[in-house]
């Protein structure tokens, strides 16, 4: 019951946050000078043409009126029409969302894997040179953001050892049998290892670029909490019972050290998703972020609004899910 109330409260706060995001985006886009409509017409267009187009997109009304019309539409699932593509924003955005989600989740998986292995190895070999080397690598990975890692990876595995693809999501000449836009998921479900390999060869570098900084954070934090846990009495007690180092780390220390890391991973995962914007651009990956930059450059207002709101919804949802996961994993909260 208390849990349910906490969830409802969180949902309410999230709604306020999202409303705030909507207002800010809407205002920011409209307060500033620059008329997208005049940009989309050929140079010879008359004032009359411009006025008609403005009316079509509702740009001739006052800003509060525009907002109300737009917000009313959003609540019914209508995000307006893209100015450049002349398609419903929702269709465009949902069409690209799977690509970005697959990339983000792959990156998250890589980050957890790399960070987890680094933390466990560092704990197992504490006090050795290996631990010192892991710490140094961690520090490096942490100091440099995903954009730069992306460029380094382009050079390393795109040019010097050209083993992976550095642009696009999938080789265009391939015959694609997909019915949804979740290419990776679908090719796994359809048992098509050839397609999985091609998709991964495109996704691995952008995913790594996104994953490296997060892996460093996970590695650092998890190792720190593991180290603290390793000194606790129940770990010592497990040693006296005849258990070896591996069991002590994995079974006794890890379940307790994971919680603080998990909370942080949630926040950091939203940063990772935010990072897809530039990383997708860098690797010409046809996801939401790439679409967003095109929309900004073309001043496609309805599309920008739609994308920013969608990002905000994803961020909020991730935070909510992480909070719930923490409750589910913590016996203290679960069995109050």
């Amino acid at each position: 019951m208390r849990l349910l109330r906490a969830i409802l409260l969180r949902l309410a706060t999230s709604a306020v946050t999202l409303a705030g995001v909507a207002v800010i985006v809407f205002v920011v886009i409209r307060v500033v000078p620059g008329d997208p409509v005049s940009m989309m017409l050929p140079p010879g267009a008359t004032d009359d043409d411009i006025a008609r187009l403005r009316a079509f997109y509702g740009l001739d009304r006052s800003i509060p009126a525009q907002f109300l019309i737009w917000a009313g539409g959003v609540l019914q699932g209508d995000f307006g029409t893209s100015i450049t593509n002349r398609q419903p924003v929702l269709d465009l955005v949902l069409g690209r969302l799977p690509a970005t989600l697959e990339l983000s989740v792959l990156a998250l998986g890589l980050a957890v894997l790399m960070g987890g292995v680094a933390a466990l190895t560092g704990t197992r070999l504490r006090g050795t040179r290996t631990e010192a080397a892991i710490d140094v690598a961690n520090g490096m990975a942490l100091s440099v953001p995903d954009f730069l890692w992306g460029l380094v990876l382009v050079l390393l595995f795109g040019v010097i050892f050209p083993v992976f693809n550095i642009s696009g999501r999938v080789t265009p000449s391939l015959d694609l049998p997909f019915t949804t836009n979740f290419y990776l998921l679908e090719s796994i479900l359809r048992l098509r290892p050839d397609l999985v390999a091609d998709l991964l060869s495109h996704m691995i570098l952008p995913a790594l670029a996104l994953a490296i900084p997060l892996a460093a954070i996970i590695g650092q934090l998890l190792k720190q909490s593991l180290k603290e846990t390793m000194h606790l009495d129940y770990v010592t007690l497990a040693r006296t019972r005849g258990y070896g180092e591996n069991h002590v780390i994995l079974r006794e220390a890890l379940p307790n050290a994971i919680l603080p890391t998990l909370t942080l991973v949630g926040v950091q995962f939203t940063f990772l998703i935010g990072g897809t914007v530039i990383i997708e651009r860098l690797f010409s990956y046809e996801g939401l972020g790439n679409l967003a930059i095109d929309a900004v450059i073309n001043r496609d207002l309805p599309l920008i609004q739609g994308i920013v709101i969608l990002f905000a919804v994803i961020f909020t949802a991730v935070n909510l899910i992480v909070d719930l996961a923490c409750v589910a994993l913590n016996p203290r909260l679960r069995h109050g």
Partner: peptide, 22 residues
């Protein structure tokens, strides 16, 4: 470790921290 684990046991000082909370 195995020999000690099989033949010996420890009663620790602080029962609050000697049981794994997870």
């Amino acid at each position: 470790r195995r020999r000690v684990g099989a033949a010996c046991a420890l009663i620790p000082q602080d029962p609050l921290t000697a049981l794994n909370p997870a």
